[in-house]
């Protein structure tokens, strides 16, 4: 097949030119695309200034004095307020020590400080803003929409995050975190900004209504009663383990009792 392509390219310059033109067009689209995005919220300049001061104390050693990035950390130009809000309020940033992945931990910043940091990061370049509730809320969806959310979840998310959102393994010590108890806003922010190894799921491919359906599905899934202890939703490995420990282990204990000679009179 490949040699056909090669021949065609040799034989006629015109189709090649056409392809080139299409390529250019595509590249142009790509270059133009980000400009069409939500513009940065530069509303409160005092908040930006506060954020900058905080940033320079706590973030700049890795991300540079103006968020331009260093060898230690990526550039934050254009990541948007949503990214900053996600990373800091889940405790992932600032990182305590370099590792394969920034783990979720206790957030030590106040809401005002996070808002200031987000405002500063947003001022660096246009990126996704912090979403409003109607963008991510999973409330008030119809059963059909919830079911569609389930299909979207299983198609786009479960490969890494597992069928119940319990999390899963990635190469070289990285992992997809559990989604149990994670709010709709965090899920929206993660999908739109693609933190760390997670790919971006932009509104072009998955509009807000789809995100809401996914959030609604997860909330309903995690709220429904279970038919017994679920072993963290880890699937057949955990089930097998408990079949051995509780099933075989328990029955063997009874078997020992059955075959044991009881107390004797002397």
């Amino acid at each position: 097949m490949r040699f056909l392509t090669a021949k065609r390219r040799h034989r006629a310059a015109r189709p090649a030119l056409l392809v080139l033109a299409l390529l250019l067009m595509g590249a142009l689209y790509a270059a133009v695309a980000p400009a069409a995005r939500v513009s940065a919220d530069t509303g409160n300049s005092q908040q930006v200034a506060e954020g900058k001061a905080l940033f320079q104390v706590t973030c700049s050693s890795c991300h540079g004095m103006n968020g331009e990035g260093t060898s230690q950390g990526p550039s934050l130009v254009g990541v948007g307020a949503a990214a900053a809000n996600f990373q800091v309020s889940t405790g992932r940033m600032p990182m305590a020590n370099p590792g394969a992945q920034a783990p979720r931990k206790q957030n030590t910043y106040t809401d005002e400080e996070i808002a200031a940091l987000a405002a500063f990061v947003a001022s660096l370049g246009p990126g996704p803003a912090i979403p409003t509730e109607d963008q991510y809320s999973g409330e008030g969806l119809s059963p059909d929409e919830l079911a569609k959310g389930g299909e979207l979840f299983r198609t786009n998310c479960s490969a890494c995050h597992n069928f119940e959102g319990a999390g899963g393994a990635l190469p070289n010590g990285k992992y997809a975190p559990s989604l149990v108890g994670v709010s709709g806003q965090r899920i929206w922010e993660a999908m739109r900004t693609g933190p760390q190894q997670m790919p971006v799921f932009s509104s072009g491919a998955l509009p807000d209504e789809d995100v809401r359906a996914i959030v609604g599905y997860l909330d309903t899934l995690h709220a429904q009663p279970s038919s017994g202890i679920a072993f963290g939703g880890l699937g057949p490995v955990a089930e097998g383990l408990f079949a051995w420990i509780i099933g075989i282990g328990g029955i063997c204990l009874i078997a020992v009792w059955i075959a044991a000679k009881g107390a004797r009179a002397r």
């Binding site: 595509g26 695309a33 069409a36 569609k148 790919p199 072009g204």
Partner: peptide
């Protein structure tokens, strides 16, 4: 097209770092 929603995809909809099924 996007799986499930069947939404056709434009090149401009896709950002660097994006994954579409």
């Amino acid at each position: 097209v996007n799986d499930i929603t069947q939404r056709p995809l434009k090149a401009s909809d896709i950002e660097i770092g994006q994954l579409v099924n």
